[in-house]
Amino acid sequence: MVNSYVCFDLETTGLSPEKDEIIEIGAVKVEEGKVIERFSRFVKPDQPISPMVTALTGISNDMVADAGPTDQTIYDFLYFCGEYPVVGHNLMFDYRFTYRYAKKYYMDFQKEGLDTLKIARKVLPDLPSKSLENLCSHYGIVNSSAHRAYHDALATAKLYQTLKYYFGTSEEKLFTAAPLVWKQKKIQPATKRQKEYLKELAKYHKIDINSDLETLTRSEASRMIDKILFQHGRMERQRGSWPVKK
């Protein structure tokens, strides 16, 4: 049964570990049920934080503007985790993002862990919602600032301790750490035709793409094409070619 661990949570710009970005990391280190160390850092994303994400998390572009170098933040967080198993609510969501960032900066994040969401699904099957907010409400756990990484990490640690108190003896296997396994999807570069089409669209509509076409992935190029077509419309075809608008 895991009694010492690092419980962590991320705030991100979206749900995809392949294309979205971390904007905040929060964690607590717990030994024998007591918090002994805390971690809280902003991460500045490459793309601006959207108003929707700011509305959900309360994190604005101004708040992350002075965040330190991302590679140093990731290194510091991995050092904070050390050899401890990790705990999280819907843990694989946060693990995937962290694993991808670690790999990007040539670091390792192979961990064992426990997911309070999986535990709750087993021991509280009749509870309508297994969200962190609802589980905290169910057990009277106060989360003073939901959707902020550190506060959600602390609330999750309290939730884990509560679940272990009530079910640790009868469901001991649920409180044993297991290896976390995730294989990152292979990133496919944009096709030659996608890059040519983007150049044609930019020339036709007289717009700047503001991206290095050679570094785009296939999905990024597809989204960019869709955005241009939505905002500016299609090109009118004349005699089998794409004419430049005058």
Rank of each mutant, 00 (worst) to 15 (best):
T191Y: 04
T156E: 02
F109L: 02
D212W: 08
V6A: 07
T57A: 08
I49E: 03
D9R: 02
A120I: 01
L174Y: 04
Q188D: 12
L10T: 13
P189N: 02
I25D: 11
E133H: 13
K185M: 11
D46S: 14
A149P: 08
D94N: 06
Y5V: 05
R218M: 11
K173I: 04
F39D: 11
P85H: 01
N3C: 10
K19N: 12
Y166K: 13
T191G: 09
E11W: 06
V86E: 05
E133L: 11
V86W: 06
F175K: 07
R41H: 03
E200G: 08
L56A: 04
G233I: 06
S170M: 12
T162V: 04
F77E: 00
F175N: 01
A202Q: 04
E220R: 08
W242N: 13
E236M: 13
K29N: 09
Y75A: 07
K186E: 15
Q47L: 15
P179L: 02
S129C: 13
G82E: 01
E133Y: 13
L124K: 06
T156Y: 09
T176R: 12
R193K: 15
L127V: 14
A65D: 04
G88M: 00
L132K: 01
L163T: 04
D76Q: 03
P243A: 10
E214C: 10
L135G: 01
V35I: 15
V87D: 01
M224F: 13
F97D: 09
E171N: 06
Y166F: 12
P85C: 00
S144W: 01
W182R: 00
E133V: 15
Y5T: 05
D62Q: 08
C136A: 01
K206V: 13
F80K: 08
G113Q: 07
S222E: 15
G33R: 03
S131L: 06
K44G: 00
S131F: 09
Y101E: 11
P69H: 05
M63T: 03
T176F: 03
F175T: 02
G26S: 12
V30W: 02
G82I: 00
K19H: 15
E32F: 13
F80T: 02
P125M: 08
M1Q: 02
I22R: 07
Y5W: 07
A55W: 03
P45H: 05
V142E: 13
K34W: 06
L15P: 12
V28Y: 04
A178P: 09
P243Y: 08
R239N: 15
K245F: 09
K245I: 10
Y75D: 08
R148H: 09
I141F: 07
M1I: 03
S219T: 14
A120T: 11
G33L: 05
D115S: 05
K183T: 13
K122A: 14
Q184G: 15
N90G: 10
Y160Q: 02
P179V: 04
L198I: 01
E133W: 09
E37W: 04
Y165A: 13
D46E: 15
L91C: 08
Y165H: 09
I36N: 10
A190R: 02
N3D: 12
E18A: 09
T162W: 00
Q184L: 11
A65L: 05
R223I: 08
A190W: 04
R38T: 12
L201D: 06
T215F: 11
I209T: 06
